[in-house]
Nucleic acid binder design. Structure first.
Length: 426
RNA sequence: GGAGAAAUACCCAAGUCUGGCUGAAGGGAUCGGUCUUGAAAACCGACAGGGUGUAACAGCCGCGGGGGUUCGAAUCCCUCUUUCUCCGCCA
């Protein structure tokens, strides 16, 4: 969400940005916003004058009442009633227009970083860098579910019976590996100076609508029946929600938090072979990182954040690459976004395992996350990034560490979390 | 789940019964200044936020959130949320 004052002063920049994102149908919205804003300010001024008049007259009535000048008081009461009638319509109009303005403002995309590559859709995303060599072994890598079944690490049949499609039982050493990855990732982030946090796994509707649009909510969030609660789709929801409507002290910044949570997603409209197995599921676990910082620091944090993920994956000897979202593929709220993709020797391509986003001040403006300034308060910048989401990363993990004999090698860094285990055998 | 009490600005807190010289007193903290070689103390000033408009002054909204009554609401009514105390239940 942009600053309306910015739109007012720089309509051309806003329009140019919309063109860069190939959303030309939104161009007329800019002028409409400016028109609405003008009308609202006009209403506000007229209303303020009426309210000022009412305030003085009301206190005059009090004065008359004390002096027992009943007639004068009653006469003035009638006058104020007239003002109130006038105000009623005006206030209603102001409210309606503000609502309309806000709605449109939500759909006008954030100004993207100048470094973002221009492109229409995800096919034009740009590879930034590769880490570790993407190897294809001389034996065939089976589908990940088959590998997992061979080591008795997954039970999808029972899960379908108990909870339906999109759930899994992880068992034995694979379940342990899953926990090991989470714990390793947690400690990895703590060592980077992040504060570990376990947030609520359910949040209220007002927090949900704060962090996402209605359509997103409908497509992702599970609602608890009979309660004003939703299961979180990512801990970012609870973690950013923590800061809604707060004014932060400079000396407490930056907030660098790493959070663990299960994530629940409806995943409406997901299908296809590569979306099956444990790639896209209704419930998974994730270690997340978020940063709330000074505006001028967000760019530097962005670079740091996705490099942490890269470092984490390469420390587990999983080849990754970074892929930058082009303008057209970038979500409206984001200034810049880079995905971390892991190598799949089976598919012989990279697939997404994490996503790092700099939201600039757009999220903060929307949620009222401010910093106490010398003279004026200003909006913070927010960023979020996946540390690791084990079920999906496990696909990359087992594919890259599968040995010819069907065993899965455990990289050095994870062994302490696996009781010293060096490999998982069939 | 049941009963009761409460929510005022960064913190403490008066005001609520009885609506109007409260467009929120007072204290602490913080920041700026005077004094001082420096500091403390004392004194003076600023001090929740959010809009609008101006050359400047001013004005509007704001007492947990939302709604209502009224000429006028921190104050009365409804509702939601949160906190505390007690009872019940339960890892």
């Amino acid at each position: 969400m942009l600053d309306i004052k910015f739109v007012r002063k720089n309509p051309e920049i806003v329009k140019e940005n919309i063109r860069k994102k190939f959303q030309d149908h939104k161009l007329p919205l800019v002028d409409e916003v400016i028109r609405l804003d003008e009308k609202i300010r006009e209403d506000k001024q007229v209303g303020d004058q009426l309210r000022a008049k009412r305030n003085t007259m009301s206190s005059n009535i009090g004065q008359y009442m004390r002096e027992k000048k009943i007639d004068e008081a009653n006469q003035m009461k009638a006058e104020v009633q007239k003002i109130n009638q006038e105000l009623e319509g005006l206030e209603k109009e102001e409210e309606e227009l503000s609502e309309k303005l806000k709605k449109i403002m939500m759909t006008i995309p954030n100004i993207i970083d100048p470094s973002v590559p221009i492109g229409k859709d995800d096919s034009q995303n740009v590879e930034i860098e590769r880490f570790l060599e993407p190897k294809v072994p001389d034996f065939e890598i089976p589908y990940h579910v088959d590998i997992l079944e061979k080591v008795k690490g997954i039970d999808l049949d029972s899960a379908r019976k108990v909870a339906g499609n999109g759930f899994y039982y992880l068992t034995g050493n694979i379940a342990r590996l899953h926990s090991a990855v989470i714990t390793y990732a947690r400690d990895f982030m703590i060592n980077k100076g992040f504060t570990y946090c376990i947030p609520p796994f359910m949040i209220r509707s007002n927090v949900v609508t704060g962090v996402m649009s209605f359509d997103e909510m409908d497509a992702m969030m599970y609602k608890i029946e009979g309660e004003d609660l939703y299961l979180i789709g990512t801990s970012e929801h609870s973690m950013i929600g923590k800061f809604i409507d707060t004014i932060l002290n400079k000396e407490d910044l930056p907030y660098t938090l790493t959070s663990y949570s299960p994530c629940f997603r409806k995943e409406k409209g997901a299908h296809g072979i590569e979306e099956r197995g444990i790639y896209r599921i209704h419930q998974f676990e994730k270690q997340e990182m978020i940063v709330v910082c000074e505006p001028e620091e967000s760019k530097a944090w962005f670079e740091k954040l996705y490099h942490y993920t890269v470092e984490l994956f390469t420390s587990m000897l999983i080849p990754v690459r970074t892929l930058e979202c082009c303008s057209g593929d970038l979500a409206d709220l984001k200034v810049k976004s880079i995905d971390v993709e892991a190598w799949s020797p089976r598919q012989k391509k990279y697939f997404e395992v994490g996503s790092c986003s700099n939201l600039g001040d757009a999220q903060a403006r929307r949620l009222g996350i401010r910093i106490k300034g010398e003279k004026e308060n200003y909006f913070a910048h927010t960023l979020n990034n996946t540390v690791v989401a084990p079920p999906r990363m496990l696909i990359a993990f087992i594919e890259n560490h599968l040995q010819k004999d069907g065993s899965i090698e455990i990289p050095e860094v994870l062994r302490p979390y696996m009781g010293g285990l060096k490999e998982i055998r069939p």
